[in-house]
């Protein structure tokens, strides 16, 4: 087992990502992610303080849409795709916790 990422971190990350892992999956992911992160050491150790990050390959800016209404889509078509719909709305189990 590598020290690049711990089991607890894997469990924490899985919770953030809303994934449930069985104990053996936690082991496997810990091992596999550690190996990927091992490879990431070449990037992690780079001295690049003076380099600006690039989030996007194109130097585009200011792409705007005109504030004009375009037709919405038929809600029945959309709601037909929903696992559960009721009263023209999407039905979900109780929501616990607060909206951030």
């Amino acid at each position: 087992m590598s020290d690049r990422i711990t089991r607890d971190e894997v469990i924490h990350v899985a919770r953030l990502a809303r994934l449930e892992l069985a104990p053996d999956e936690v082991d496997a992911f810990t091992e596999q992610l550690a190996r990927v992160l091992e490879h990431a050491a070449d990037v992690e150790s780079l001295e690049v303080d003076d380099v600006a990050p690039t989030s996007h390959p194109l130097p585009l800016a200011n792409v705007y849409r005109a504030d004009e209404v375009t037709p919405s889509i038929d809600r029945d078509e959309v709601l037909a795709q929903a696992p559960f719909a009721e009263d023209h709305m999407f039905r979900v189990p109780p929501v616990l916790g607060e909206e951030p």
């Binding site: 990422i5 971190e9 894997v10 990350v13 899985a14 953030l16 990502a17 994934l19 992911f29 596999q32 992610l33 990927v36 992160l37 990431a40 990037v43 992690e44 780079l46 690049v48 380099v51 600006a52 990050p53 690039t54 989030s55 390959p57």
Partner: peptide, 27 residues
């Protein structure tokens, strides 16, 4: 696996070491 890796790379405490560095490599 990739969702986990990406979540980790963006998460508090690791962003600068991983995602942030990777964006600089892109430069």
């Amino acid at each position: 696996r990739r969702i986990m890796l990406g979540t980790y790379a963006l998460s508090a405490g690791y962003y600068d070491a991983f995602y942030g560095k990777a964006l600089k490599v892109r430069t």
